[in-house]
């Protein structure tokens, strides 16, 4: 029932999986920034090419990624239409009442759609190939300098990894409670809005009760095993930066230079 592809991790042993999470995070960040440099067919083509290379290297099936993207197509489509009718410039392709489509508008809406799609594909690729734990470890390490100004980076990362860790558990729990109440005849999917909202009570109360209990248990278990915050704590998974990571960032740098040279 919860088959969203975005945000899901698919373990495997591809080139992209083995990259250091830090290089992937920096890479995705840079990529999302430089996407905005692309303003003609060539530069947009380069972005798409980069995405395809990423997918190929991650050995993820295209059909799987396509399936996950289906739900965002509607958003992309609406943006496309809005831009198509609102943006202007170039020759008029056709006119129908006050609706006017121009060649410039058409190009711009295609570019914007490509931009949204490549951003989504790249971030999806990040979460598909990097476990939540790796992502938080990477973030903590990248944000480390901020500890100097007393920002609770470690606590923040811990909170994040705990939340991420419990998302599947909560989903499982939700599914179980939905099933248990459905077996008692409650129905979350039909009826008026009011009755549907009322039907949420038997789901939310047990979910919260369970979550609080779990949080208490976890806190107790952590304390019992001597958790005392950041100071003096070592890491189970050491991050290590390899030549591959340097390659990724070099590739993105090259891409940036190419974009700057070839854009209008």
């Amino acid at each position: 029932m919860f088959n969203l592809v975005i945000g899901q991790y698919v373990p495997s042993d591809s080139y992209v999986h083995r990259l250091d999470p830090r290089s992937k995070l920096i890479g995705v960040f840079l990529f999302v920034v430089i996407v905005f440099l692309a303003d003609n067919w060539l530069t947009n083509g380069l972005m798409v090419l980069f995405c395809f290379t990423g997918i190929l290297l991650s050995r993820m099936r295209f059909s799987f990624i396509y399936k996950g993207l289906r739900s965002v197509f509607i958003i992309v489509f609406i943006t496309f239409l809005l831009n198509l009718f609102l943006a202007s410039g170039g020759d008029t392709l056709f006119q129908w009442g006050w609706l006017r489509v121009t060649s410039g508008g058409l190009m711009q809406s295609i570019f914007i759609s490509i931009r949204i799609l490549v951003i989504i594909v790249v971030t999806t690729l990040l979460t598909l190939t990097t476990s939540p734990i790796e992502i938080t470890d990477g973030m903590e390490s990248l944000l480390n300098p901020l500890k100097k100004v007393r920002l609770p980076v470690h606590e923040f990362a811990l909170m994040m990894s705990i939340s991420l860790r419990f998302i599947p558990t909560l989903l499982e729990e939700t599914e179980k409670i939905i099933k248990a109440q459905a077996a008692r005849g409650s129905d979350f999917t039909t009826g008026s809005l009011k009755s549907r909202i009322k039907a949420l009570v038997p789901l939310l109360v047990p979910l919260f009760v369970g979550a609080f209990k779990r949080a208490e248990d976890l806190a107790m278990a952590m304390e019992a095993r001597g958790y005392h915050g950041d100071a003096g704590r070592t890491k189970l998974h050491q991050l290590n930066w390899s030549w591959r990571d340097t390659m990724l960032l070099t590739a993105i740098l090259l891409l940036t230079v190419l974009l700057i040279l070839t854009r209008n």
Binding site: E173, K176, I177, K179, A180, Q181, A182, A183, R184, G185, D187, V201, P202, V205, P206, V209, G210
Partner: peptide
Amino acid sequence: LKKLREKVGFVFQYPEHQLF
């Protein structure tokens, strides 16, 4: 399905988690 659920009861593992 609803008709069926009325005729067949289901007690889950740890059913106490469904009280609300």
